[in-house]
Design a protein around this nucleic acid. Structure first.
Lengths: 217, 217, 217, 217
DNA sequence: TATGAATGAGCATTCATTCAT
DNA sequence: CATGAATGAATGCTCATTCAT
């Protein structure tokens, strides 16, 4: 199993933008620094130095420090998030996941690895979401589109087959996400313990969810 | 159902300390300001003004801005958290919660209300936890003590009666917390939607958990 | 009565220069912006944007921001000021101003209207004069040439006829200018009051000057 | 003849304020620097260095650079200007100036010396007036009060005795000020020529004004 | 000739912290 | 214990100017 690297996808997105190499560097190092130290604890001179550009260059393009964050957040929302979502859905389709258990096993492990792999980037976004409701709204809309679309179709098929409880899809997704998050959020936000066993965690989560989401008898 | 106010408990704890009234005021307004705007975006002069003290007073006792945070976090960890835990466990005992469903119903609703009620304070702590591993360790230890103690006893009783799946207590608690968190974390960190229906959320969560944590047949 | 527009004359002067259209645009918008906000409060990027040229273009020709000012001031001193002076003197000759009163009446009203009409441009020059002694020297020289030339001849004729006090011409001009300035300077530098009545002001000023400059009995 | 020093009066005013010695120093050197180089060309670090204080001190009290200017302008308008006006009027009364000529001679020479003496301070105020209409309004009101009060009374007495033309007092004052200004404004704003002969200028101005303001026969 | 990305010194301002009173 | 004036390093940002294309 091979999960996307948000950092890589972000770089690709930047490469397609009309930003100069130096300005791309600013955004790349900003993402890293914001992830490592937080937005408020990263100074613009630090960014300039790390990107190998002058302080003037940073502001010439992005106007304000907040503007740098926007210049990261917007393309991620517009391009990286959809790419990640599409690849995830594609993998679900490609991998011949016929019964719910196989489906969930794959999905859970995949997202768990994705979360761990992209810890720092998720942290930046989560922190920014707590101040910027627009991001929350955008991501919510994208999630709802997914649930109303392909993901919903898949869930419905499992319901029809009597493998999945007949709850609204958003409620089912809430428990899926919540359960996965109960494993990965501590890794992301608190001590990232070296001994985190994603495979075991996936099995455990699957076990729990297969019970919790089984159809009522 | 009547949940603790962390703010109130914190004030009581301060009242028992040997801090002067002015210094108590500093800590109280700091907690509020940190919650509202974040630690980094709150200046010490802002604290001084809001507390009605001079700028010197803020530092006389607490040495540094970080020291103010510690002077909040430490008593909360040392006194407020135990009081909250004790009251929670006491309520669980007092309320004649004999079967698992009744027990979980109460516990879930109680903690959900607690979380919503103390949103801002939880936010301060969560943010501080993401940079201070000590707090994580301390809270982890307290949680483990709970699970090893009274809470574990209660869970064991349900297991013995065949009402609860025979998983390690920490795993069970993880799913309990994760499921409740899937409802309250968005309220705490992102848009606190006015129409959040804690009662309905509690029923839904209970429903899910009762299935997920049912013993294997 | 129809007074010169410094702005128009300046444009004509530019049109005769070997400057490209873009560079002419730079000087034109610079004059306007300097007048509106002052030299120090006008940035070169602001000029570039307003002129519709790149930032590089601004400096390609004029080297420094101060150079832009010089490129405005010099042609104005070299061409616009002489044109204004010549036209003024020509009008004085053309209009059959035989006696002092008619002469002064015309001159005062004409210059008052000129000052009000070209308020902003005068302001730029006045501000620049207070830091650049060269302009003062140049303008002084031009004034002296006028007084030594045609204007002096006219004044002398009035003296010879016994209509004008026998003071040095520069002294007479000082009072003429000072009296007109006592009306127009407040308009130029402070609140430009909408209700300024140039005709009435001219009559009053004339009245006063006819007394003050009458020959001793 | 001994004219007020605005600088001295300003210092006295500051001494009566509740500003600390360092903050008074900030205002004093600011007044000087603003006069010498203009507001925009004076940096706050320059002010701090010249005042012998840290940059923080400058802003602790005055919040913004504009705030420094206000902290100079306001006390001058509130205290220095009235003191200057009062002293001027007192001197006019004390000096037994019975006929118009003696009166004007004294007044003209006194104000001319005052203007030359306080060149730099007048420059600061004039520059600030061209951006801040409030100052213009305040000074206008004070001038009108003077003209409606003691100064008006004096002028009326000369009118009654047939020594002074029967024009509105404001008009008479306009010519007085304008004529004096025609001598001193060039000194203040342009090259302050070393050879300026205030005594001679006063005599000339008096001569002109005595003619211009003589009553109609 | 014109462009516009890049520069880096400089600016106004903020901030946590100190210390004499 | 409390004050608040004073500090000076650091911050986000602007600006005139340069230079490769």
């Amino acid at each position: 199993m091979q999960v996307n690297s948000v950092e890589t996808l972000f770089k690709k997105t930047l490469a397609n933008s009309k930003l100069s190499a130096k300005q791309q560097a600013v955004l790349q190092v900003s993402l890293t620094l914001f992830a490592e130290q937080g937005f408020d604890r990263t100074s613009t001179s630090e960014i300039a130095k790390a990107a190998g550009v002058s302080e003037g260059t940073v502001f010439k393009q992005f106007k304000t420090k907040e503007g740098i964050l926007q210049a990261i957040v917007n393309p991620v929302l517009a391009h990286v998030v959809p790419m990640v979502a599409t690849e995830f859905l594609d993998e679900l389709k490609t991998n011949d996941l016929n019964d719910l258990e196989t489906f969930l096993q794959y999905a859970i492990q995949d997202r768990m690895m994705f979360a761990v792999e992209n810890r720092l980037q998720i942290k930046v976004f989560a922190q920014e979401m707590s101040r910027n409701p627009n991001i929350v709204a955008t991501l919510s809309a994208k999630l709802e589109a997914m649930v109303a679309g392909e993901l919903g179709t898949a869930l419905q098929r499992f319901k029809d087959r009597g493998e999945l409880v007949d709850w609204p899809n958003m409620r089912i997704v809430r428990y899926l996400v919540g359960t996965v998050a109960s494993y990965v959020l501590p890794q992301i936000f608190f001590a990232p313990t070296a001994d985190f066993d994603a495979a075991q965690a996936s099995r455990d989560a699957l076990d729990f969810l297969m019970h919790g989401l089984a159809p009522a008898k």
